[in-house]
Design a binder for these strands. Structure first.
Lengths: 118, 118
DNA sequence: TCTACAATTCAACGAATGTCGATATGTTGA
DNA sequence: TCAACATATCGACATTCGTTGAATTGTAGA
């Protein structure tokens, strides 16, 4: 991930409704959420959400697929992990005091055994 | 780190000059950089940088101290790691495919031995 | 104290952003 | 084909954001 992409990702997440949308999509898992349901969950109008989803999509943080009348949105896990890597690589800069605390989050999130395939 | 703080941090990083400022400060290390040098490094006017530094400071991503005529800015490592933790905790949500790639960044950045004190 | 330097604050401007209403596109079943 | 539903697009508007130039605050040395 280059600086330009990271910039787009940060800008995308720096907006209340977009951050909430992404969190809802991550919580929803790989099955994703229909745009309508997502709009209702966030509490904004459908057309406004469309605007924000386009932003998130352009930043590589979400993906979409059509399913019948609905368009299902899902979190782009690779985009998210790219952003985390950017933060760690760029902002850690060899200083354990930045990266080390992330380890606890890693442990809390993913069972240690699941990280072997990296 | 709560959602409001994460929002402020993302918004702060979603701006070219602010992202470059933070990266420069991280690269500078704990000694930090004087505002004037930082402005020169980024290539923007001093007063404009002041505006951006206030934004970064309010987001908890940098700190400052006066040293003679200069004001020295430094990256706030704890703020940075909080943001990384927020991303991992909130966006990982038990899915190793998001967190796992971060491990490689962690390994590349910090020697494994240095993370024991967490 | 006066001068020079370093950084910040202020007012003002143009540009970009987020939201809304209306309209358009696309999909499904009758 | 038609009506009903789900999204997306468009035009317009108010608000916010980033930059600039001028003025202000704070610090150090002559």
């Amino acid at each position: 991930m280059d600086e330009r992409q990271a910039l787009a990702a940060f800008a995308a997440l720096g907006q209340e409704h977009r951050l909430r949308a992404l969190r809802a999509l991550v919580a929803a898992g790989p099955d994703g959420l229909a745009a309508g349901l997502l709009a209702e969950a966030i509490g904004i109008a459908g057309n406004t959400l469309s605007f924000h989803l386009k932003e998130l999509s352009h930043a590589g943080l979400i993906a979409s697929r059509r399913e019948g009348k609905s368009v299902i949105y899902t979190a782009a896990y690779d985009g998210l992990s790219d952003l985390i890597r950017f933060l760690m690589r760029d902002c850690c800069q060899g200083r354990p005091e930045v990266c080390a605390p992330a380890l606890s989050a890693l442990a809390a999130c993913c069972p240690a055994g699941d990280t072997d395939h990296v």
